[in-house]
Design a protein around this nucleic acid. Structure first.
Lengths: 143, 143
DNA sequence: TATTGTTATACTCTATAACTATA
DNA sequence: TATAGTTATAGAGTATAACAATA
């Protein structure tokens, strides 16, 4: 039996990611945010970060790139930054009330996006997909 | 039995796509190209496009964005553009010898990337993953 | 008028290098 | 000297709007 003629996996993954990313970005934009802002907000909400380096790593960007986004978020009134009295090199990033409101709006959009994405997938399908995606991440992880 | 506590699918997908995209972009850069250049070259190689609008659609970008990349590719000597005598509005895009060489170099890099990505996945796993990804694309496809 | 493609312009995300402040 | 973060600068990719050429 010949192997089925299939698209390269990378092509399939890239096409899927592009489509899903665009849909998600549109949903976040409609809710008044963006992907990096969402990732930063959710990181700030769910875990207390010791410093910005950790935050940048959680979001998957460089420190200077994080500063860039934090500047915009501070201008927009979503966060405040103040020095840690215990170690004045560290800048403590905190959500304002507006930041919290934006977080909830973006979360709603994200939940809706996820519901749409999962539509028609059984629990078993979802578990299998999560397993396979994790495997792909291992495969491309830098040595 | 409680539902297993799982990451939102969108988060998993986005993380996987980011990691895989980065690895792929690095591989293409090392081979002297980039993702849009690769997508354009493979589209030109595999199918004769009637016009640039079709080419842009195949690559998943806007016409003006395609022009931007074609300009760079023409400057780099990878392609030539000339008007179609039959319909002088249409610009025929053709690969040069250098474009062909670059195509083969990028294809080698892409094949190697895909081999790495698929490492440890059975044929059944790959087919299942392709099926699930196709489903996700349908789910986010604009109505 | 409609179609094909280009030009002009700008925005977002990202990154590296050099710098400041603090320890 | 080392660490935390910012500033300055740049580059890639993308997009929209206005335009030119052709039918």
């Amino acid at each position: 039996m010949p192997k089925p003629d299939r698209q390269p996996l990378g092509v399939d993954l890239a096409r899927t990611a592009k489509a899903a990313t665009r849909a998600f970005d549109d949903a976040l934009a409609a809710a008044g945010g963006s992907r990096p802002v969402w990732l930063i907000l959710i990181s700030l909400k769910t875990r207390a970060m010791a410093n910005q380096r950790e935050l940048a790593e959680a979001v998957g960007i460089q420190g200077a790139t994080l500063t860039h986004h934090l500047n915009a978020m501070e201008s927009a009134g979503l966060i405040t930054r103040r020095r840690d009295p215990a170690n004045r090199r560290v800048h403590l990033v905190e959500l304002t009330a507006a930041g919290d409101t934006t977080f909830h709006a973006l979360r709603t959009a994200a939940v809706e996006h996820d519901r749409r994405l999962r539509d028609g997938l059984s629990d078993a399908d979802q578990a299998e997909l999560a397993r396979l995606l994790a495997r792909l991440r291992e495969n491309v992880a830098p040595a």
